[in-house]
Simulated assay, not measured.
Amino acid sequence: MFGFNEEEIAWFGLTFGVSAFILYMLFIIGQLAWESKAGKFGTFVLFLALAFGMVGFIAKGVIQWIIEK
């Protein structure tokens, strides 16, 4: 497709696509905290609980970058 092979399309989707999705999810969590008037501690707990799964994806990218270097 457009001169790209399957590996390049998958790399693009996994890096930029999932990263954009993570940023959008952080925006949604921030909106949830803002609309519920959670306060500082409540906002921290929301981000900790709901965004903790994203840490694994980010850590995977950092570990791959370190190993390839």
Score class of each variant (00 low, 15 high):
Ile9Thr: 06
Ile9Asn: 03
Ala10Tyr: 05
Ala10Ser: 09
Ala10Cys: 00
Trp11Pro: 03
Trp11His: 02
Trp11Met: 07
Trp11Leu: 10
Phe12Asn: 06
Gly13Ala: 15
Gly13Asp: 13
Gly13Ser: 14
Gly13Trp: 12
Gly13Leu: 15
Leu14Trp: 07
Thr15Cys: 08
Thr15Ser: 11
Thr15Pro: 00
Phe16Ile: 11
Phe16Tyr: 15
Gly17Ala: 06
Gly17Tyr: 05
Gly17Pro: 08
Val18Lys: 01
Val18Asn: 02
Ser19Met: 11
Ser19Cys: 09
Ala20Cys: 11
Phe21Cys: 07
Phe21Arg: 09
Phe21Val: 08
Ile22Cys: 05
Ile22Leu: 03
Leu23Phe: 03
Leu23Gly: 02
Tyr24Asp: 06
Met25Gln: 10
Leu26Met: 13
Leu26Cys: 09
Phe27Cys: 03
Phe27Lys: 02
Ile28Met: 11
Ile28Phe: 10
Ile28Asn: 10
Ile28Cys: 09
Ile28Gln: 10
Ile29Ala: 01
Gly30Gln: 09
Gly30Glu: 11
Gly30Met: 11
Gln31Asp: 13
Leu32Cys: 13
Ala33Ser: 08
Trp34Tyr: 15
Trp34Leu: 12
Glu35Gly: 10
Glu35Asp: 14
Glu35Cys: 09
Glu35Ser: 14
Glu35Gln: 15
Glu35Phe: 15
Glu35Met: 14
Glu35His: 14
Glu35Ile: 12
Glu35Pro: 03
Ser36Thr: 15
Ser36Asp: 13
Lys37Met: 07
Lys37Asp: 08
Lys37Thr: 05
Ala38Gln: 14
Ala38Arg: 12
Gly39Arg: 07
Gly39Thr: 07
Lys40Ala: 12
Lys40Leu: 14
Phe41Gly: 11
Gly42Lys: 01
Gly42Val: 00
Gly42Gln: 02
Gly42Ile: 01
Thr43Arg: 00
Thr43Lys: 00
Thr43Ser: 09
Phe44Cys: 02
Phe44Pro: 00
Val45Phe: 04
Val45Leu: 09
Val45Gly: 00
Leu46Asn: 06
Leu46His: 04
Leu46Cys: 05
Leu46Gly: 06
Leu46Phe: 07
Phe47Tyr: 04
Phe47Pro: 03
Phe47Asp: 01
Phe47His: 03
Phe47Thr: 05
Leu48Glu: 04
Leu48Arg: 02
Ala49Leu: 15
Leu50Thr: 00
Ala51Met: 03
Ala51Asp: 05
Phe52Thr: 08
Phe52Ile: 12
Phe52Pro: 01
Gly53Lys: 03
Gly53Ser: 03
Gly53Arg: 05
Gly53Trp: 04
Met54His: 12
Val55Asn: 08
Gly56Gln: 04
Gly56Leu: 07
Phe57Gly: 03
Phe57Arg: 01
Ile58Cys: 04
Ile58Ser: 05
Ile58Asn: 04
Ala59His: 02
Ala59Cys: 05
Ala59Leu: 12
Ala59Pro: 02
Lys60Val: 06
Lys60Thr: 09
Lys60Arg: 11
Val62Glu: 05
Val62Arg: 04
Val62Ile: 10
Ile63Arg: 12
Ile63Ser: 13
Gln64Glu: 15
Gln64Cys: 10
Gln64Leu: 15
Gln64His: 14
Trp65Gln: 10
Ile66Gly: 01
Ile67Gly: 03
Ile67Trp: 00
Ile67Lys: 13
Glu68Gly: 02
Glu68Val: 07
Glu68Ala: 11
Glu68Lys: 13
Glu68Asn: 11
